[in-house]
Design a protein around this nucleic acid. Structure first.
Length: 150
DNA sequence: GCCAACGTTGGC
DNA sequence: GCCAACGTTGGC
């Protein structure tokens, strides 16, 4: 079992949206490294930190779970979608995604600022300078430790 | 809205 | 295969 952190802009799709919908296809990822994590390394049941990015209070807002194997992101084939990719084809899809299901909303957001202040989390991928991945792995030890902060 | 940091594209 | 130009991410 692995652990992950997945970023979403709450104005677009927040932890409350996931709570209401219970399950969501994580579409729109257009970064190869992030795609590879979903395609190659995620397994059903893996733990996910749902992270709110590009907002007033960036941080971990809830818990989710990988709910499917990877499959082609349908939005890449939809000319009306902002995620449309003319270079991709159904025969040879470029972008893959997984479904994610709601587990719970944290009682409070564990903010980015707070995470930065814990020496035990110094090595977190999320905190690496210049990191822009929207899907990234979380160490088991980091996962457990962060859960104690809530 | 700014801008640092990074990824991608495409000419050569 | 290099690298300049461009686009995007995301914190602030």
């Amino acid at each position: 079992m692995k652990y992950w952190l997945m970023k979403s802009e709450p104005d677009t799709f927040s932890i409350d949206d996931l709570k209401r919908k219970k399950r969501e296809a994580w579409d729109g990822v257009r970064n190869y490294q992030a795609r590879n994590f979903m395609r190659d390394d995620m397994r059903v049941g893996d733990g996910v930190f749902f992270y709110h990015s590009n907002c007033a209070e960036p941080g971990i807002a809830g818990l989710a779970e990988v709910a499917s194997d990877a499959y082609p992101d349908p939005s890449q084939f939809d000319p009306k979608s902002k995620y449309f990719d003319a270079a991709s084809s159904r025969d040879n899809p470029r972008w893959m995604l997984v479904d994610v299901k709601f587990v719970n909303k944290l009682k409070r957001v564990i903010t980015l600022d707070e995470l930065k202040n814990h020496p035990k989390l110094e090595g977190m991928t999320l905190l690496r300078k210049g990191n822009r991945l929207s899907v990234m792995p979380v160490d088991a030890a980091e996962w457990k430790y962060i859960l104690t902060l809530e």
